[in-house]
Design a protein around this nucleic acid. Structure first.
Lengths: 144, 144
DNA sequence: CCCGGAATTGCAAATAGTTTGCATCTGCAT
DNA sequence: ATGCAGATGCAAACTATTTGCAATTCCGGG
């Protein structure tokens, strides 16, 4: 049984062609994808699938903790990425929207600190860094 | 001229009743608001305004750097808050969606580090911490 | 103070993203 | 192999947001 099938089974989800393909797509891409990107990729791979199924699958998997769903500053749609134990953050270019992953996360101690200070049970965080990539910066896109 | 009128003028925006009211609302609330929340608040205050105007105003003001627009994990709509020089982050309850502000931000050095490492021109970041508030935690909403 | 042009607003209609109802199909335990 | 709970496809509904256009308002110059 493949690693992906194991993930599904352990979450109590049926292992279907579409689910395996979607998880595989999220695993291979190193960047977060919108539902439609996943759908397009499925089509490219000739996996029969409907956009509703993609949405439903992504939601179900989020609920089961296999993937994470989030929104980006000023973007009108949701992005999804595989849940990773060693989590990463992204550097998002305000000019061209390109995202690149950043290694390392400086927030573990901070979370503990907050937890102690607030009585909340912290489960995680989302951090995105915004800026201009070298190309957009030199193209003057950051002049306001 | 009020502080708010100055903000508008300095950004090159006309000072209209709706804009002043919207800025005032965002300034008074200590939490981020969705467009509709702003609209409802305007109605409450008997400020004549249309939902499109609210959206347009919020967008224009984001572009001019007066406010910030962002998305929350798993929420289908955008939130807006006044831009603050001393910025804050929020602790968001996964159970009841309540947000509370957290004082202090541990990321300034981290940004410099990233800037040095990547050649990007960093302009800021968005950090939200997710967890369960004491009420939701004891109500067992975090058991999966 | 009044006027004109440009910016802003209201309204209604369009769009984008996402969700849902229901009939059909499929994976998996027996 | 068989049955049924869970998954999918399709079309229609919904929610959040955007847009075109005509009417209105702001603001600088006369």
């Amino acid at each position: 049984m493949s690693e992906i099938e194991t993930m599904l089974k352990e979450s109590g989800l049926k292992s279907t062609k579409q689910r395996r393909a979607i998880l595989e797509i999220l695993r291979k891409k190193e960047l977060p994808l919108a539902a439609e990107d996943v759908y397009i990729e499925l089509k490219k791979q000739n996996v029969p699938a409907n956009l509703s199924t993609v949405y439903r699958t992504l939601d179900t998997m989020s609920e089961h903790g296999l993937i994470q769903k989030f929104g980006l500053m000023g973007e009108g749609r949701a992005y999804y990425e595989l849940f990773r134990v060693v989590h990463r953050h992204f550097l998002v270019c305000i000019g061209c929207k390109k995202m690149i992953p950043i290694q390392g996360c400086p927030l573990h101690e901070y979370e503990l600190e907050i937890e102690a200070k607030t009585d909340y049970k912290i489960s995680g965080h989302r951090l995105d860094i915004y800026g201009y990539c070298p190309e957009c910066a030199s193209a003057g896109k950051n002049i306001e």
